[in-house]
Design a protein around this nucleic acid. Structure first.
Lengths: 206, 206
DNA sequence: TTTATTAAATAAACATGTTTAAAGATATGA
DNA sequence: TCATATCTTTAAACATGTTTATTTAATAAA
C-alpha cells in the first residue's frame, strides 16, 4: 500500500515523476544532444542538480525516459505475434516492429542504444534486461520450432537466438546510422540474412 | 616531393604529428575519458585549441590515433592467413586476430568503436573504410569458396559477408562490455554461431 | 625591402554534464 | 513541544570539449 509512504518519500517520488515527464517531452522534441539537463530541470521546475540526484546521469535519464515505449512495443509485439506463420516471418515480424518504433525518432534511439550497448550490463540494467527478454523470447520460439522438427535437434537454441539477435542488431545499426535507409530496406536485408542463417550457406540443399 | 611544401605547411604537419604522437601515448596510458585534450596539448607542447584545429574533435583524434594499429593488424592478418584451412577456420582466424588486438586495451577500443559505429559513415571515414575493407575481404573469401563448390551458387556473397560481420560485431561487443569474457570464450561463441550460419539450423542435414 | 594578405596558433570565453558543500524540510525521540 | 538527526533540494563550483576573436608568423605583392 501507499499509506506507509511518508511525506518525504511521496514528494521525492513526485519530483522524480516531474523530471521524467519533462525529460520525455524535451528529449522527443529536441533530441539528446540539443536538450540539456538545465532545460529539463527548468521545465520540471527543479534545480539541475536535482536531475542528477534522481537519475545518476543524463544517459540514465534517457534510458528511463525511453524504456517505457520499448517495453510497451515489445509486449505488444509478443502479444500480437501471428501464430500460424513460418519461423522466418515471425522473426521478421518482431524486428520490423522494433525498426518501426526506432524509426519514429532515429536520432533519439541512436543516442540511447549508442550509450547503452557498449556499457557493462550493470550500468544499463533496463536496456540489458530488455535485450535479455528479447533473446529469451527468440529462444523460446526456436525451441518450440525444434519440437515441431523444423529446427534440427542438435541446434543450441540459445546460440541460435543470440545469432539472430546479432543479425538484428547489425541491421538496426544500419538503420540508425544511414539516413537514406528505410525500415523496409533494412528489413529486406535482415530477411535475406535470417533466411540464409536458417538455411545455411554451405553444401547442397535437399 | 616534399620540396614544394613551404615552411607553413611543414610546420603545420609537424604540429599535427606531435599532437598525434602525444595522443597515442596518453590514450594508451590513461584511456579515453581520463585523458583530456589539455593533457595531450600540454604533452605535445601546443595549445588545447590547436588540437581541435588539427583534429575536428577528440573522437576524431582517437580514431586517427588508433587506426594505424588496426590497419596494421588487418593487413598482417590478411597476409598471414593460412590458405589450406577450412572456411570456418579462416573466418575465425580473422576475428580472433581482431579480438586479440582489442583485448590489449579494451576500454580504449570500446571508446573508439562506441563513438564510430553509430555515426554516419561520412563522420568516421577511417573506421568506416576499415569495416568496408574487412567485409570486402570476407566477401572475397566466400566468393572463392563458391567457385570451389563449398558455398552454394545461389548465395549472395555480399549478404553472407555482412552477416558474418554482424555476428563478429556482436561477439566483439560481448568482449568489450563484459570484463569477465576472455578472447577464447568469445571466439568459441562466435565459432558456434558462424558454424551454425554456415550449416543452417533448419531441416535435416545430409 | 616594405607592405599587405593569408594561414596557423593561441588565449580567453563558453556550454554543459557532474560534483560538492550548504541550506531547507521532514521525521524521530525526549 | 523542542532538539536532533536524516533526508531532499539546491546554489555554486568544477571539469572539460569546443568556439571565437586575437595575435603571431609566413607568404605574396608592391
Amino acid at each position: 500500500m501507499f499509506k506507509d509512504m511518508n511525506r518525504r518519500e511521496a514528494s521525492k517520488k513526485e519530483t522524480k515523476r516531474m523530471i521524467l515527464k519533462a525529460a520525455r517531452t524535451l528529449f522527443a522534441r529536441k533530441g539528446m544532444e540539443e536538450c540539456t539537463i538545465r532545460d529539463i530541470a527548468r521545465k520540471a521546475g527543479v534545480s539541475p542538480a536535482s536531475v542528477v540526484v534522481h537519475f545518476k546521469s543524463k544517459t540514465a535519464l534517457l534510458e528511463e525516459a525511453l524504456c517505457v515505449d520499448i517495453e510497451i512495443a515489445l509486449s505488444e509485439l509478443v502479444a500480437s505475434m501471428p501464430e500460424d506463420i513460418e519461423l522466418i516471418d515471425r522473426l521478421l515480424y518482431l524486428s520490423k516492429g522494433f525498426f518501426r518504433l526506432y524509426d519514429k525518432n532515429r536520432d533519439l534511439y541512436r543516442a540511447l542504444i549508442r550509450s547503452t550497448v557498449f556499457e557493462p550490463a550493470s550500468e544499463t540494467l533496463i536496456m540489458s534486461n530488455l535485450s535479455e527478454q528479447y533473446i529469451q523470447f527468440l529462444s523460446h520460439i526456436i525451441e518450440e520450432q525444434k519440437t515441431r522438427g523444423i529446427i534440427r535437434p542438435e541446434v543450441d537454441c540459445r546460440i541460435a537466438a543470440a545469432s539472430i539477435f546479432f543479425l538484428y542488431n547489425g541491421a538496426l545499426i544500419l538503420l540508425l546510422r544511414m539516413p537514406e535507409m528505410t525500415v523496409d530496406m533494412v528489413s529486406d536485408v535482415l530477411a535475406s540474412m535470417t533466411d540464409q542463417y536458417l538455411k545455411g550457406i554451405t553444401g547442397s540443399h535437399q
